[in-house]
C-alpha cells in the first residue's frame, strides 16, 4: 500500500501534490510511477468520457484519464498546460491528467482525517481522506478508486 516511514512511533506517508481545477489533491508517492508531459494523445472513440485518450510513453501505451472529467469539474481550457501522473495498475499503465504537479509533502498518518460528511459525493467516491493545511485542504486520492470506473463505464 502506501510507503510508511517509521519515526518514533509515528507513521509517515509522502504525497505527490497535484492541482486539479483549483483544488489541491495528494497521491501517495508509492503509487506514482513518474510524472510526464502528455504528448500526442490519441482519442479513443466510444471510450468512457473520463478517458482522454491513449499515448505512447517510451514504447508503452498509456491510458490517459482526464481527472477534471473524473471529478466532474469544468473542462480544461484549450492551451492550458497539462501534466500527467503515471500510475501502474496490474501491469497496465495509466496517466492521470492534472493541471499542475506541486511538491512532495510528508505527513504523519494521523494528519489524514476522515472525509467530511459534506464533501461533494463525486469527490468522496475517489478520496480516502483529507489533510488540513494552512489555509487549504489537501484531498487524498485513492488511486484504485480513481481508476475503478466500472460503474461509470456501465452507466455511460
Amino acid at each position: 500500500m502506501t510507503k510508511k516511514t517509521d519515526t518514533a512511533s509515528e507513521q509517515f506517508t509522502e504525497y505527490v501534490t497535484v492541482i486539479i481545477g483549483d483544488q489541491l489533491f495528494g497521491l501517495s508517492i508509492s503509487r506514482v510511477q513518474d510524472v510526464f508531459i502528455p504528448d500526442r494523445l490519441t482519442k479513443v472513440p466510444l471510450a468512457p468520457p473520463e478517458v482522454a485518450g491513449v499515448l505512447n510513453l517510451r514504447g508503452r501505451i498509456v491510458t490517459a484519464i482526464d481527472m477534471r472529467s473524473r471529478l466532474d469539474l469544468d473542462k480544461r481550457a484549450s492551451g492550458q498546460p497539462v501534466m500527467a501522473i503515471g500510475i501502474d495498475l496490474r501491469g497496465e499503465s495509466y496517466g492521470l491528467l492534472v493541471d499542475a504537479v506541486g511538491e512532495v509533502l510528508k505527513f504523519p498518518d494521523s494528519a489524514c482525517e476522515a472525509k467530511p460528511a459534506n464533501l461533494d459525493p463525486r469527490w468522496a467516491r475517489v478520496a480516502s481522506g483529507v489533510i488540513r493545511l494552512e489555509g487549504q485542504l489537501l484531498v487524498v486520492l485513492d488511486v484504485d478508486r480513481v481508476l475503478d470506473m466500472r460503474k461509470r463505464a456501465i452507466a455511460a
Binding site: V44, V51, V54, G59
Partner: peptide
C-alpha cells in the same frame, strides 16, 4: 487497457512508426 476493453469495435492498439498510438 482493461478500462477500454469493453469497446467491441477494437481488438487492441498499436504504436505506429511515427510514434503515434492507434486503435
Amino acid at each position: 487497457s482493461t478500462m477500454l476493453r469493453h469497446i467491441g469495435m477494437f481488438s487492441g492498439n498499436t504504436i505506429l512508426g511515427d510514434g503515434a498510438v492507434i486503435m
